[in-house]
Nucleic acid binder design. Structure first.
Lengths: 313, 313
DNA sequence: GTAAAACATGACAAGTAATGACATGATTAA
DNA sequence: TTAATCATGTCATTACTTGTCATGTTTTAC
């Protein structure tokens, strides 16, 4: 076996152990202790932060977190990593911030000038636009950490009705439209609610959980329909166009031969509020057949607006 | 110089050239031809896809794209790369798809089981939610490529008024809310317009451009205000809350001591259409003082809805 | 069809590097 | 004090690397 290969094996071996002696390595790899010492010198020269303690119970300790074996990337692969990082550019308070910039630095500095130009081009020709928010989400990291550790949280939360204490069991966090959301089980209200991480003022305390709970993916698929209600709407051509651009409806729009179309699906009553504003915008491009509540809501909102601006001309 | 170092140098050297002879390497590194042949055998054994052509004008050719020198990542850095890739999960038709999965595979297979668990946890506890669209964007890659190459495009585009041919100069592409957009200069309309990549039916032809044009970043900062108009709105507490959640307004909301607030800013007349639907939703939580056009628009929309549903009760 | 330019491979000697055995010293904890 | 460690040095031996020379093979230009 070549020296390089053996050094690599030892590198991997030692970075997985917090402490070890030269004898252990010698036994493991069937080489002499003298050679182990020489190898360790080599690794140290190569920049591995390893230090030794002499005396009984001494040994070697590797300081940094574990290293992976050296990986050969192609230029295209490096570019793809930059591309992925680009997509994170518009978020604030991201986890792994320091790691991301150190990876970017390691990769960028090992690229040739030609590839650097390509990276720079990608940076200037493609973007993942989430509005660059001024809203700070300082607790994002903590919330993510506690979610992964499967802990319950007592938090101070700023809701519609003021600042409240909540006792919740987090499911996970997700970003949408530049904001971070935390779906979690509320022990007081006894159901899963959606919190905004930027509205969490502080985490008061945490407690461990033994059992497993729902994860994010399950929750995404779950999306409770507790009060099913039929949504039935006729759409003009323009109505179809617009509905197809709305994530929520996109999958339900049916186009007919004459170019018009309809939506006919079951939704949860709790979503009516959200849907109302969509149909306000669509105006006569959408004619709602069901549910009555939605029509009533639309009329109410329309009347509110007319009342409000009745004297303006 | 050690063999390993020299091999690496040669690896880097040869991957930057498409074709070379053993003599060239021998001259470049001042070693004998025989040794070059031996080294090339070594590199080939190490998995470098290199092949030779015999005879006059023969030489060696490296098949794959360029390799970077081997890079040592820490486990945390690898995790951060997975985290970044996670953010791309909900897009379709991404560029660099194959590279992303090969990087994922390379990294994942070199991780220890402990770290693999961490990755899996991150995957299940954090998400970047963009609605998983069924809309296909098959031309995304091409459009991006041509944008980077600074080419003009003749495209077939499906707009409100039907299928049209357009002659455009792309600025770049960006993703927003799960859709891909292409800001580009329209040679016919003589201004910059925003196209949706999924509505580009085909690219008819391209032509090169010599000079530089605007890039995405500049365009984001540019956002033309051609017809400035004052937007002045009073907000209730709830109005403030809601406006702060709207990316577009977020920066302009001013809160007063009594908890109410206002927006007072300059916008472009072209944006009124978009804004109307926001204020339809806000209803009496927002009282518009200026512009008149917006009030007229709201009333018109409200009346349209009342007319539409007048006989329902 | 021959010569030149290239890769392919083998043998061998000379040089260089890596290894193990042994020795010695230093440091630490039991 | 003693045992367990690391640290370093020397030296003979072994293993590897390199250059030189030799011999083939394949391809293309002329």
């Amino acid at each position: 076996m070549s020296k390089a290969k053996r050094l690599l094996d030892i590198l991997l071996f030692v970075t997985t152990k917090k402490k070890f002696t030269a004898q252990e390595i010698a036994d493991e790899f069937h080489i002499s202790i003298r050679t182990v010492h020489r190898y360790i010198l080599d690794l140290s020269d190569m920049g591995l932060p390893i230090y030794s303690e002499q005396g009984r119970n001494g040994g070697y300790t590797v300081l940094t977190s574990r290293f992976l074996p050296p990986i050969l990337f192609t230029e295209e692969e490096a570019v793809s990593i930059f591309y992925a990082f680009q997509s994170l550019n518009y978020y604030r308070n991201l986890p792994f911030d320091t790691e991301i910039s150190s990876v970017e630095h390691k990769l960028y500095s090992s690229l040739q000038s030609e590839a650097k130009i390509k990276i720079d081009k990608i940076r200037s020709y493609i973007a993942f636009w989430n509005p660059k928010r001024t809203i700070d989400t300082p607790l994002l990291n903590d919330v993510l950490k506690y979610s992964i550790e499967n802990r319950n949280l007592h938090i101070q939360y700023e809701s519609k009705s003021g600042i409240r204490n909540k006792h919740i069991r987090p499911i996970g966090v997700y970003a949408h439209d530049g904001l971070w959301y935390l779906p979690a089980y509320d022990y007081h209200k006894k159901k899963i609610l959606l919190y905004r991480v930027d509205r969490i003022l502080s985490i008061l305390s945490t407690e461990e959980n033994e059992d497993d709970f729902m994860n994010l993916k399950e929750w995404f698929n779950f999306i409770e329909i507790k009060n099913p209600i039929r949504l039935h709407v006729h759409l003009t051509m323009e109505g179809i166009r617009q509905c197809k651009s709305v994530p929520y409806f996109e999958g339900f729009v049916v186009t007919q031969e004459d170019g018009t179309g309809y939506i006919d699906t079951i939704i949860d009553r709790g979503e009516l509020n959200f849907i109302t504003s969509l149909f306000l915008r669509l105006g006569s491009h959408a004619r709602i057949l069901e549910p009555k509540e939605l029509i009533v809501g639309l009329r109410k909102q329309a009347e509110e607006i007319l009342t409000m601006y009745q004297d303006d001309n």
